[in-house]
Design a binder for these strands. Structure first.
Lengths: 341, 341
DNA sequence: CGAATTCTGATGTACGTAAATCAAAAATTT
DNA sequence: AAATTTTTGATTTACGTACATCAGAATTCG
């Protein structure tokens, strides 16, 4: 049988009230007594029954998800997953609130973060925009005692407790190798379509991609990056122009969102050309393109896993518990047409 | 505020005792009364607080994992993950017992399954050997009211509640495409190293592999399958012989365990040849081989995820609850040297 | 040394559910 | 209608923890 507070009291030779004072950091316990109790806790290997404690406390976990506006499929999916989590809130004692902020807008994000200060929150999850002032705002939030996890895009150098997202440098490297190997020694140009170089995850993907390309596939030349701002229309235009302007393009890496535009360009301008294409994010569009051969591989991060992981980590952090590391590693999914879910 | 049993009682106009009788299927309630209570439960949207119920019941989940003996790395890893789960047992109210059975031995497996019959178990997880008598034994266990999940290798056609493992046909297909694409149009022979064609997961991987190879890479010819029984020594011999005997082998797919032997053969006999190699299961050996270029891709299933998923599903099934489908899908991991964890 | 202060113990209630007991009220049978 | 059986209600205890209150003990201070 697992030891209880009564066992602590007996082992330490004190009353239940004193055990409670120690366990819950309430005042009015002499140092010697506290140490006696803490020793007993260690000796008998007591671990608080979180379920019982939460029941007694009537505890709920008020969580906030700060998500950027934006109408690409990935963000839609992310919203959907958070809403899914909200439907399970009674079940796991969470109270989830979504806060929308304009994308790529550090001041707006900082304002929202600061607005959360005084509130009694068990955790804040945010899709970080990479800027010093955001970093500072996150650090303020952490300093005020609120668990903070970054979602999808990290904020290195900040004091955030956890990052629930993929390793984007590794993602870029993987894309490079897939593209390079799939091209099997052919010589030619590679076009990269990004959303914006202002976002860390896009920058990191490009960084990983470029380094492997340079080191291992010298016969492939990278063309200047196209920035489509995750917008289908812009992407369509940029890719169409690029393809029309050059016959030596044999591969495309799309590391951002808004792939509908890319796909349209491929269907129209890319007609009849032999292009190897690797893109990010599995959506209904990219899934179809993968199946019909327009795309050769899709790299993906599972938004559902990211959201659930973020919630688990925030709850655990709020309770001072630790998590199962392997469970919280967000993996890079690689989809070919054969292993689609 | 979430409704409680008191709210049901008030809404249905009955006493708490009657509500309890209905909720816990205790006798002594007239049909009309029961229906009245059930209606109230639906109306106010009551959902039992499982944590509180478990506390009151002092409930634990006695679980059994039936695992095959075998000294390959994957099985070691699987054992390790189950033991990891055991260390968390006080925390999640499980009581896990490991039962070892000889690998590829249906009668032994059946005996163990039948021995579990009368016991009060919240669930049984087994690495299924694919045989009719095993199927029947699993069905008996399910019929006796025990939740059963298959782990790593499925038992289709049985009444098992869930399968915690990857889609092995998809895995084989994926391997074929990776190998085919990485070979970039070269013409030659492909050797397949399996453990045993008596195991369903190996058969399925081969099936998926062969079908994609035949359909999409006609320039590649499949040599007869080598059965290494997941044993490093046998695998080494078989692969060495195959490589020595033919200069037209340009690709290898190892779909089973025991890759140490394969790697040794590659280091020795495969020296200086340009081979493209895809294997299953990420171990310390395959990791190194991936990094040094001996292997081109590793397909993997995360044993930790499989074990944790199996536990979640068994608990939920025992409680008659449902699970988050997306969370319990075991994904096929594809590792290149760039995205190793 | 007595008074003021700090610490500790004893006890009760609560969280939401399970489970048991016994009495009272219905429904059913004779 | 009485006797019997079946349903229902009322109440209590328990699970492991949190939290509050008040009295009594130990300690510290003047």
């Amino acid at each position: 049988m697992r030891p209880t507070v009564y066992d602590i009291a007996a082992a330490a030779g004190v009353s239940l009230a004193t055990v409670d004072r120690v366990l819950n950091r309430r005042p009015g316990v002499r140092l010697v007594t506290r140490e006696k109790v803490e020793a007993a806790i260690r000796d008998i290997g007591y671990v608080r029954d979180v379920a019982a404690a939460n029941l007694a406390k009537g505890r709920v976990y008020p969580l906030v998800f700060i998500l950027p506006t934006g109408d690409n499929s990935f963000m839609h999916g992310l919203y959907g997953e958070v809403r899914q989590a909200m439907t399970r809130s009674t079940f796991d004692r969470t109270e989830i609130r979504i806060v929308e902020v304009p994308a790529f807008d550090p001041p707006a994000l900082v304002a929202e973060l600061d607005a959360l200060q005084g509130q009694e929150l068990a955790g804040v999850a945010l899709v970080a925009t990479d800027a010093p002032e955001v970093r500072a705002a996150v650090d303020r939030l952490v300093a005020s005692g609120i668990p903070v996890v970054t979602l999808v895009s990290d904020l290195t150098g900040s004091t955030r407790h956890h990052y629930a997202g993929v390793d984007n440098i590794a993602a870029g490297r993987t894309a490079a190798r897939l593209l390079g190997r799939f091209l099997g020694g052919r010589k030619g140009d590679i076009t990269v379509l990004a959303g914006s170089m202002l976002v860390r995850d896009h920058r990191e993907r490009l960084e990983g991609f470029s380094s492997v390309m340079a080191a291992e596939f010298p016969q492939l030349r990278l063309l200047p990056v196209l920035e489509g701002r995750d917008d289908p229309e812009i992407a369509n235009t940029l890719v169409s122009e690029a393809l029309s302007g050059s016959n030596s393009i044999i591969g495309i890496y799309s590391l951002g969102a808004g792939n509908r535009g890319l796909l349209r360009a491929l269907k129209e301008t890319g007609q009849g050309r032999e292009l190897t294409v690797v893109v990010h994010e599995l959506t209904e569009h990219t899934r179809i393109a993968l199946l019909d051969g327009t795309i050769d591989a899709v790299l993906n991060q599972d938004a559902g896993h990211e959201v659930r992981s973020a919630i688990r980590v925030m709850k655990a952090t709020a309770d001072g518990q630790d998590v199962i590391a392997g469970q919280e590693r967000i993996r890079l999914d690689i989809f070919l047409k054969d292993n689609l879910p």
